[in-house]
Every structure is written in C-alpha cells, then in structure tokens.
Design a protein around this nucleic acid. Structure first.
Lengths: 224, 224, 224, 224
DNA sequence: CATGAATGAGAGTTCATTCAT
DNA sequence: GATGAATGAACTCTCATTCAT
C-alpha cells in the first residue's frame, strides 16, 4: 500500500515536473512554436516520456489551464463561504483574481488564448468537457457573489451573470493587454491598472456612488 | 503615370481580394490550422501568387489586424474632432467599439490573439512597428477623450492612459469571452453585455454617479 | 485541351516513376522496413512529393498490386474470349500466370502478402474495395474457364470456383515458396516447378488421365 | 541437479506462456501492429521480462514458426516410418497437413509470411539457420514419401523434390488464400477446398488416373 | 504577372529495448 | 528473476515557401 502510494506520488511529481517545464517553454515561445522536444529538453526528459504522462501536446497544454481554474475555484469558494458583507466579498474578488494572476501569469495568458475556439476545437472531448465545466462553475460562483450584493441592494440590479461575465472579461482583457504592452515596455503594470479598473467597476455597480463634491455628475447616455 | 496608378490600384485590389479570403479562412479554422493553400483556394488564386502580395503567412495575418486598427483610428478621430461634450464623446466611444466589432468580428478576435506575444514574436519588424504604432495611437486617442472629461471634472481624476487601457481591455475581454461562450451556446450576446458593461464603466468613472434613491452607498474597499 | 491532356499524361508518368521506385525499394527491403524517404530517394524526388501522388504509404503500396491485378484481368479476358478448346484455355491459363509473374515478380510476391489480413486491415476502404473487386473478378474469370471444361466433360465435375481457388493458391504458393528458397539458393526455379505443377494439376482434373502404360493406377484414398 | 532441472522446466514453461500470449496477439493484430507491450499485457508480464526469454521481437515471432515446424516434422516422421503403401502415405500426408493447420491456424499463416524474405532478412543467423534446417528437413521428408511412390511406380516419375515443393506450395497457398477470403466471407472453407485440391493432386500424380468412363481424355498441352 | 509542382525541414508520435531498483 | 519507467531513434506526414515555366 505504501508502495502504491509512493508510486502515485512520484507519478504526480513527474507530471508536475513536466507541466512546469511546459509552462516555461509555452510562455517563452507560445504554444504552436513549442515542440514536444523543447519541453522534454527543458524537463530533462526524453520526448517519449512526456507521452507516458500526457496523451498528446494539446492535453498537456490544456492541463495547465485546468490547474489554474481549479485554483481559481478554490479561492472563489472561500470568498463565498466566508461571512463577509457583499461589499467585502466583491473587494475580495479583486484580490482573488490578482492572486490567480500571480499564481501563474504566463499560463493564465495562455489560458485566455485557449478560450479562443481556435485551440478549443482540437481538444479531446473529455478535457474540453472538464474545462467547460470548471469555467462555468467559476463564473457561476462569481455571479453568486454579485447576487448577494443585489439582494442587499448595494449592487445595482443587473443580471448577475452579466456582471460576472463583465468582471471576468475585464480581468482577462487587462491581463492579456498588459502582457502585450509588457512585451514592449517590459514593466508589469497589471496591479495598478487592475486597482483602478476595480475601483471604477465597483463605483459603477454601487447603488450609490461617492460623488466627488462640487462637481456635476456624469450623465449616462442611454443605450441606442 | 495613369498606367502606374492603375497598376497600383489593381495591385491593391488583389491584396484586398486575398485579405478577404484569408479573413474567411482564418475565421473558420483559426490561424495555425489555416494553410496558405486554403487561402489560395478561397481566393481562387495559386499559392505562389499570395507571396507576390504578402511576404509570408504572418504578414498576411497581421495585415488583417492593421485594417481594423485603421478603421478604429478613423472612427476615433471623428469622435475627438466633433464638437461634443465629454459625456457624449465617451458614449460615442462605446458605439465606435461596437461598430468596430461589427465591422469584422472574427478578425477582431484574431487580432486580440495576435496581441499575445506568441504571434507578435514572429512578425517582421516593419509590420510589428506598424501595429505597435497604430495601437498606441488608438489608445492615445481614447486617452485624450478621457482627458477632456477629467479636465471638465465630469470624469474622476485618474491617469487617462489607464482609463484607456481599461476600456480597451474591457472591450477585448468581452469580445473574446463572449465569442468563446458563443462557441458553446451559439448566441451573439455581445451587444447586451457591452451595454451593461459600459453603463457600469460610465457610472464608475463619473464624478457623481446617479444614486439609486434611499439606498446605502457601496463602500469601496481600499486597495491592499 | 492539349495542355490539359499533357498535364494529365505528365502526372501519370510521375505516378509511374514513383511506383517504379517504390517497387524497387519494397522488393529490396520489404514493406515495413521501407520508409517513404527511401522511396523518395530512389525516385529522386523529395518525400513531400510522394504525397502529391499517393495519399499515404499504404495506398502507394496497394497501388502496385492493383496494376498487377489489372494486367492479370486483361490477360484472362483474352483467354476467355478467344475461340479455343477448354483444354487449350486451361493450358493458356498457365502461361498467363507465368507471364503475370514475369511482369512484376517482386510486386506479385508483395501482393500475396497484402492478401494477408494484416495489411488489408489498414487500407482505405476505397482501395480495399477496388482490390477485392478485382480479385473476385479474376477468380470468377478463371472459374469460368473451368466451367466450360466441365460442360464439355473434359474436366471433372467439381465446383468451378473451388478449382479456381486451387490454381490460384497453387500459383501463389509456388511463387512465394520458390522466392523464399531463392533467398537461399539464388536460382529462379519457378518456371520448371510451375510446369510440373500444372502438368499434375491438368492430369488431375482431366476426366481421363493418360495412363503411363503397364503401371498400376494410384488409388485415391477417400477423404477422411 | 534436481533444482537445475526444475529451473529449466520453469524457464521453459515461461517461454511457452509468452509464446501463447504472442500467438494470440499476433493473430489478432498481425506482426507489425503488435507491440511488445501488447504481448506482455496478454502474458500478464512486464515488457522487460519478455527480453529475459527472447532476444527480441523477431526471435519471439520466429519461435512460433519453429514450433509448428517441429510438430510437422514429428508427424511426417510418423508417416514415413509406418508400414504403409505409398498411396496411403500420400493420403496421410494430406491429413498431416490439415492437422498442422488445425494445430495453430493463425501461426501457420504468420509462418507463411515469415517465409517471405521481408521478415527473414531481419532474423538472427542462428534462428534463421534453425528455420531453414527444419524447413529443408520437412520438405526432404515429404520428398521421400513421393520417392517411394515413384519407385513403386504408382507415382509418375518427376523429381521428388519438385513434388514436395508443389504440395507444400499448394498447401500454403490454400491456407493463405482461404484465410484472406475468410477475412471477407467469415467462413473457414479450408477443409473442403483442401480435399478437392488433394484429390486432384493425387489423380495428377498417379501413373494411372481413374478415367471417368465414356469421356475423352484431357490432352495436356506441352509446356511452351 | 501568375502558376502550381516540388521542396525539405521539422512536427508529433510510437515502440523496441534497456537498466536501476 | 522481474519490473516498468525511461529512452531516443525513427517513422509518417504537413505545409510554408520557392522557382521554372
């Protein structure tokens, strides 16, 4: 039994080792330019070995995303279950997202690309299913946070799912965009921009915004 | 000279023809799964001919983005130059973005992927330069819109560039995310979500938001 | 039109060129040890070019067999349609088979291996269908020859299809076996053995065999 | 010594166990599609273990043939040594061949493929030697049977080795051909066809064939 | 200018074989 | 002796790109 377990642990460690290597190479060269041999070399393994742990390149790639989604879900569950006011929960949401980014910035970026149907189309149904499911679950959890806010009337009454989509999009958009700017300017400015973005978002969804005194309010133009 | 010109025009028309074909195929199959032969077939040309008009596959791909960025710039310039109140300008911004999306939804999505360093890295410096320049210019124009808002105190005082980054990210995030959901649910819900997103964003950046009467304001938690 | 035709002819010639090269290499190294690169080198083409003319290795391989079967069929049709006595037709059959062997000895051998389900299983349905159909047709034609013999009572009354199977098996068995002995002894003895085999076979199916005078007949033991 | 022996026996049993497994898998998937792991799994052993008993895949494969050849030899020796008339011996030959087929139909088929130079070329000289020797011996034994027939004038005077080659070829041809038809029609018709084939063969080699009364004899055309 | 056959480097993947445990 | 994870050479096939016509 002990042996069984140890083997299992070692197997898992190998998987991690490969994923770490893959992460590094994918991040450097992007998915399609990365070869399995690159990853093998980085992991100090032979190409064949990778296939003992991952069915193919796509699955290896997608596994990375899966881990992030799992991490995200765990963090979100915490936020939901803790006895916080809706305002605090929404504030925590920001921290969670930022932590998720810090957890694996490069893989997160890759994941947002994976979101594009381009890559999605070539995934094994099983893995695709897992990813879909986890994404949906995370979004649902976020929506739930907003729902409590709406119920307690501190958040304006909009479809909670729409709000969830919006934060998530805002987050992913910022991550990708700041990354692409970073490719130019070499500075990680995500934190600051995210702060401002959330500040605005939170003001925007609040039932009462804190007016800056002595100043005319911004009139919201009606949707065409 | 007349001949020169006509040749030039015809050359440009051919380029367009190819880009239209490329657009279609890229949209359908994604960048990496699309072969030059696919595009040639779609354009009813031979593979070799494509190379008379585009240095290579990457350049052809990137040219598509260039067109969108050019369109975006034109529209933004309009907004800036028209004699509108800052509020109206910001409202117009939303319309512009949505129009850009409608102009070429699929290419826009592709462009947001191009934003990822993955593709960016393999571009010719010339083209990369063009894209960078156009992007920067567009963002600067957006920032200028916010700046006027800040100057007239109808927009909260935050770095205008940050605000520009945020709308742009929000926009790109929504486009990509709604598209990936569409891959699942097959409905184009971008318009509605974008409306809500802008409503919130505009409330969020307004110096005075319209309070929903009789309700406690949402307290913004301070950035950690 | 002239151009169309010439292109067609050239395409066909290329196909032949590749098939000739393939034949040579398959014969030397056997199917599974032959790589596409081997064939390309032999044909003085690049590996990629082979795939412009044959969908994959299996199809290239099977095409070789197809040609032999076609040649066989042509020859058999001749035999059937010519105004010969059944005896002469059967005698011609032997010549046809021997000619088929001479036509492409090594490919014929390969074909008999292809007959084994091993290779058969991995063929495209279309090609498999073609091969099956041609084989069946050839066997049916042979059977027809025996049928006329049976009708004219010069051939013993056994199911013509069984007789066809038997000659065909005898032929293929001899070809493969003599070849494998040749691998040892380096002499092509097929002709002689085939002569004896046919002599015996013909005596065996004759309604009256020519007794060698003054000798006791061989008593055929009844099947158990 | 007892220990030595027991070890020897156990080793032999393991070999058998592996060969049985190999037989099964080869039969199902064909030689080249069978992996050593397939065999190991079937034998409920690890891949490495196979190499303790067989030098490599080819040798394992060839060992299977060796067993059949040994079985054949034993049966042939019986026929030769028993005090039977040449006619009976030849009749027995048929039974022996059919029994050999029944003994291991699929391996027999594989063996006939092995006969092709394709596989033969990649065999260790030792094993190749063994196979050659056993084949030759079996063929010689068959030839001897015919020789006695010729001496007693019940078999026409043809080189006994040629006769042996012919039966052997006829047999192998039938086995392979019927098998490939079986792949299509799913019926094992070897027995019946073999009966007819032998009947004809025996009539063909008899010094006097049993004429079917009142019918013109079939004139054997002279070899061209 | 346009063609499209040809190229050939390089990708992902498999699997016979080895060897530390 | 038995294991099975690891190896890495070698395979088939793809496709961006070129160039003779």
């Amino acid at each position: 039994m002990g042996i069984q377990e140890r083997k299992e642990r070692e197997r898992e460690r190998r998987r991690q080792q490969i994923m770490v290597a893959a992460k590094r190479v994918f991040s450097e060269k992007g998915f399609s330019k990365t070869t399995m041999e690159d990853i093998a070399r980085q992991a100090e393994l032979s190409p064949g070995t990778l296939y003992l742990y991952f069915k193919n390149k796509d699955e290896l790639y997608a596994s990375l995303s899966l881990r992030i989604l799992q991490y995200l879900q765990i963090r979100l569950d915490h936020v939901v279950s803790e006895p916080l006011s809706p305002e605090k929960k929404i504030a925590s949401l920001k921290d969670v997202l930022y932590d998720v980014y810090c957890f694996e910035p490069l893989i997160l970026i890759n994941m947002f690309h994976l979101q594009s149907s381009e890559t999605l189309k070539n995934l094994s149904p099983r893995l695709l299913g897992q990813i879909k499911q986890l994404s949906r679950k995370a979004l649902a959890t976020i929506a739930r946070i907003f729902e409590t806010g709406i119920r307690s009337k501190v958040v304006i009454d909009r479809p909670p799912f729409a709000l969830a989509d919006i934060v998530w999009s805002l987050f992913s958009g910022l991550v990708v965009w700041e990354n692409s700017k970073q490719f130019i300017s070499n500075k990680d400015r995500l934190k600051e921009t995210l702060e401002v973005a959330f500040e605005i978002f939170i003001r925007g969804i609040g039932t009462t915004a804190t007016p800056e005194p002595g100043i005319e309010p911004l009139k919201i133009s009606e949707p065409a």
